[in-house]
Design a protein around this nucleic acid. Structure first.
Length: 258
DNA sequence: ATGGCTACGATCCGTAGA
């Protein structure tokens, strides 16, 4: 079973790239963030034509999440009460899938930073219950936290900044402490592996990036995980998202492809 | 000098992202 996540930074703009990627990668589950679409404008027909069902929670201009799956999506939940469309959960083939778009935080010490840390605390509390109900649980998405210095292209330049500050990293670790593993770090990986690169200053060409998109797996799924990788190919396309997909393979029964 | 790019919704500038 192949599961994936991608912050598409506008599904309207990235829909052709998403459809191409689905056709090539054939994931069983695909989590999307920053769709930036009201639900009435979600491209249901195009997604279904590609062989996927979808559940989505969107709003105009900002945020917005979706889960696509080849199999049926059941027990859909938007998690804890919140003002933004940042969280969606569904069960696919007995796998509990949680799609998250964690707040950016803007700048350390700002109001949005406090909001980010409070949101992570709520996410942790909600995930603790979710994990108790669903032992086979995966959390995929844009966490907006680079967990360690090796997830940062220039740790000295970023020290103490947004996405790497110690309170943010502690908030991320608190999720792992629930009994979740960062799938990417279950395997040897290339040095300087990132999932996001700034549009400015030729960030991608300089590989000036951060690894802020992650896949977290509960113990049974971590043991079943055979691979996790970042697919940089979409970042090389014309008019790319600033994020690129992250993919994990699970050796579990699934009715989908792969 | 502290931006540089992209998307969006408001109008050819401000907000937000990371």
């Amino acid at each position: 079973m192949k599961i994936a996540t991608w912050n598409v930074n506008s599904l309207k703009v990235r829909l052709p790239q998403l459809l191409d990627w689905l056709a090539q990668a054939k994931p069983d589950v695909m989590c999307l963030q920053e769709t930036k679409l009201e639900d009435a404008r979600f491209p249901v027909a195009e997604i279904e034509a590609a062989g996927y069902r979808a559940v989505f929670a969107g709003q105009k201009t900002y945020n917005g999440v979706a889960i696509l799956a080849a199999a049926s999506l059941e027990a859909v939940s938007s998690g804890f009460p919140q003002e933004h469309k940042r969280l969606l959960a569904a069960t696919v083939d007995g796998l509990r899938v949680v799609c998250v778009y964690c707040p950016n935080g803007q700048a350390v010490g700002s109001e949005k930073y406090a909001y980010k840390l409070a949101w992570f605390a709520q996410l942790r509390d909600w995930l603790r219950d979710e994990l108790a109900r669903h032992p086979r649980l995966a959390v995929l998405g844009d966490f907006n936290v680079a967990p360690e210095d090796r997830d940062v292209h220039d740790p000295a330049a970023w020290e103490g900044q947004i996405h790497v500050s110690p309170p943010e990293r502690a908030a991320f670790r608190a999720l792992l402490d629930l009994g979740l593993a960062d799938a990417f770090r279950l395997f040897p990986q290339p040095e300087k592996s990132f999932s996001w690169w700034d549009y400015r200053r030729m960030g991608f060409r300089r590989n000036a990036g951060l690894r802020i998109d992650e896949i977290l797996l509960s113990d049974p799924l971590a043991r079943a995980c055979t691979a996790c990788a970042i697919d940089k190919a979409p970042r090389k396309l014309e008019r790319p998202s600033d994020h690129t997909p992250v993919v994990a393979e699970l050796n579990v029964a699934g009715t989908g492809s792969a």
